[in-house]
Design a protein around this nucleic acid. Structure first.
Lengths: 256, 256
DNA sequence: CGATTCGTTGAATGATCTCAAAATTAGTGG
DNA sequence: CCACTAATTTTGAGATCATTCAACGAATCG
């Protein structure tokens, strides 16, 4: 993306681009066309909203650096976070497909995103269909993450819920090159965990304490350490399959 | 779809096709190309699985008639239904994007579906990109339904959960031409409601009784009657926006 | 009509919440 | 670097929504 060169270089930004290449399996040609589409760089300070529920959104964002959350405030004031967006993810989907945005997206940390008008992406279907095809393919795959979260929130007790959530983040961040074998850095406040999983702050606290007492998970400032990934995976019945869709390329090759 | 002519004519089948036209905004030309792709008609008896968790799936199904559910059985035997599929919906998404199917799909009633190898749909990106583009656009929009269900299941008490679920079904079925102003016909067993919303059978029963006692909802055999849609919507804080994505066509027109 | 499946209900239990308050940590202006 | 404020974590006690278990009646199906 053109203006990416003007962005301050960062490990995270590089990884976001790497992940685009990696996950979508864009060819170098495709990537360079995508770059020239006129993305606009934008930074957001911690807590700043990028998308507001009810407002019109005609952009997609690619997160280059930092973390976002997407949420809804219910009429009784409760907040439900439906998504934690990490570098390399798109944001603003699926809100941009609706007349008015369904959710609010805001920065969990200072963040850098690249914005592209959705119509430009759609227009590519006429000239270079494989590029938007791969992107929409990946949008379609995202349903699996929501479905999985639904299963976990709907059916699993708090301990497993939290364990599963942390393992999902670990796995996604590893793929983005932002986590090592068993830990990652991210400001995961207990309030955020609760709002993502439908648990009260007080209870999240108790459960985290238990996970720590059992020697499974430690949170030290912004670093989350999963001491025994296998044990936690088994506790949470965590299967990472839903985080590993085939790329469209991979699919075509496998079936030709 | 070619072989559709060989299917027994049914109000439901007609509506499924109508809905394809309606929602995806396919042009007559596009529809006729889609028809010739070699869909294969398949029927499933009540309870019969169409997709099995863990099995390889390289098809998408278009539901012509009948209802399907998509679910997972957890290790403790609980079942979580992630989706109720109605005529005009696609099934097998997003499982077909993964190496192994993430969920099981089975017929809730006797059902008729049309199956298409996914690779044929993808191949259309080369020759008639607008057709698969519109379909993948609609796949992408589906995330909104899961996100909304997540919010409801995660944060709302049982009464509102059930009310919301029934209103969603009513709305979707109305769009499919399968419901009137305030009622629809569908074998919605209490067990299914519970498994969709993460509630026990016993509690679903009690809540349905209360909804009936309050004169809001009645279930008589296979007919669900919502006596006062406005009152129930208000009770459930139901907003139908998330069920009304823009079609890709609509979007392009709005932004050109 | 015999067998499943589905619906209904009660009593006891439990996971999680709410409310309230203190302790700790991080952030900010001077 | 201090002083102060805001954000976050921690903990307790009591309340509650929803569960489990168990049993029985009603309806549906082959």
């Amino acid at each position: 993306m053109q203006m990416l060169s003007s962005a301050p270089p960062s490990a995270s930004t590089a990884s976001a681009l790497g992940r685009l290449l990696e996950n979508l399996r864009l060819t170098p040609d495709e990537l360079s066309i995508l770059r020239e589409l006129g993305w606009e760089l934008r930074t957001a300070r911690r807590r700043q909203p990028l998308v507001v529920e009810g407002a019109k959104l005609r952009l997609v964002y690619l997160v280059l650096d930092g973390f976002l959350i997407r949420y809804r405030i219910l009429r009784d004031g409760q907040r439900q976070i439906v998504n934690v967006t990490i570098p390399g993810d798109f944001a603003g989907v699926p809100s941009c497909f609706f007349a008015d945005s369904l959710y609010t997206v805001r920065a969990l940390t200072d963040a850098t995103v690249a914005a592209l008008p959705l119509d430009r992406l759609v227009a590519l279907f006429e000239t270079h269909p494989r590029i938007p095809a791969k992107i929409f393919w990946s949008f379609s795959c995202e349903s699996a993450i929501y479905a999985e979260r639904l299963v976990v929130v709907s059916r699993r007790p708090a301990l497993e819920r939290i364990a599963h959530f942390l393992l999902e983040l670990l796995t996604r961040l590893q793929r983005a090159g932002l986590a090592d074998e068993r830990s990652f850095k991210m400001p995961l406040r207990q309030h955020v965990i609760g709002d993502a999983l439908g648990l009260s702050l007080a209870y999240v606290n108790r459960v985290l304490r238990q996970l720590a007492d059992d020697g499974l998970v430690f949170i030290r400032g912004d670093r989350i350490i999963i001491n025994n990934v296998d044990a936690l995976s088994s506790l949470a019945d965590f299967e990472h399959g839903y985080l590993r869709p085939m790329s469209m390329t991979e699919f075509s090759e496998a079936t030709v």
